[in-house]
């Protein structure tokens, strides 16, 4: 009989335990890691106004596609480029670039022209091992044409693999954090 009483007590305990659950609304999660925006600010070396290339996806992995904007570049001109990576889901927007530079040995941007009249991107920065990062670049245009530039950010690429430090991602491995295609005109 004792045991039955014990059980009665236990069941009672259960009812209490279940009725105590709080009814508060959960907190929203603002994704910290998401990259929403890649922005390359190109400054012509001989002076002139900046041109901005940007890809912006304000719903992250949501259904909306990124909005890509570019500007026209001048022929036979060298531009200094600075890359910024942002998470605009946070307010104020979080600038992710320092985080990438902190782990610069594990990150590299790649710039590949699919169509161009001979435009070229060279790296203008180095990580602790003397390998390129690609956050600072030099972009040199050629004759007037329609250009397509693919910008890729790889996490944990093999920077020592053949061609990687020269900007060829073929043997780099790693995981893709950003992959954006910019179409623009060179006049």
């Amino acid at each position: 009989m004792k045991t039955i009483k014990l059980f009665g007590l236990l069941f009672l305990g259960l009812t209490f335990a279940t009725s105590c659950s709080d009814d508060d609304d959960p907190e929203p999660v603002n994704e910290e890691e998401v990259i929403t925006t890649l922005r390359i600010t190109l400054t012509p070396d001989g002076g002139g106004s900046d041109v901005i290339f940007e890809s912006r996806d304000l719903d992250g992995d949501g259904p909306d596609a990124p909005i890509v904007t570019t500007g026209d570049l001048a022929a036979f001109t060298t531009y200094s480029g600075v890359v910024e990576v942002l998470n605009e889901l946070e307010t104020p927007p979080e600038i992710k670039t320092p985080e990438i530079l902190e782990e610069d040995e594990e990150h590299q941007f790649f710039y590949e022209f699919i169509t161009s009249s001979g435009a070229d991107v060279t790296y203008d920065d180095q990580d602790g091992n003397g390998n390129p990062i690609g956050q600072m670049i030099e972009l040199t245009t050629a004759s007037a044409s329609q250009n397509t530039l693919v910008v890729t950010l790889l996490h944990e690429p093999d920077k020592d693999a053949q061609g990687v430090s020269a900007g060829d991602a073929t043997n780099a491995g790693g995981e893709t954090d950003i992959s954006v295609t910019f179409s623009f005109a060179v006049n």
Binding site: A65, P66, I178, S179
Partner: peptide, 9 residues
């Protein structure tokens, strides 16, 4: 397929 900043999924 949906587009994100990392490419299409």
């Amino acid at each position: 397929v949906e587009q994100t900043i990392r490419g299409a999924f």
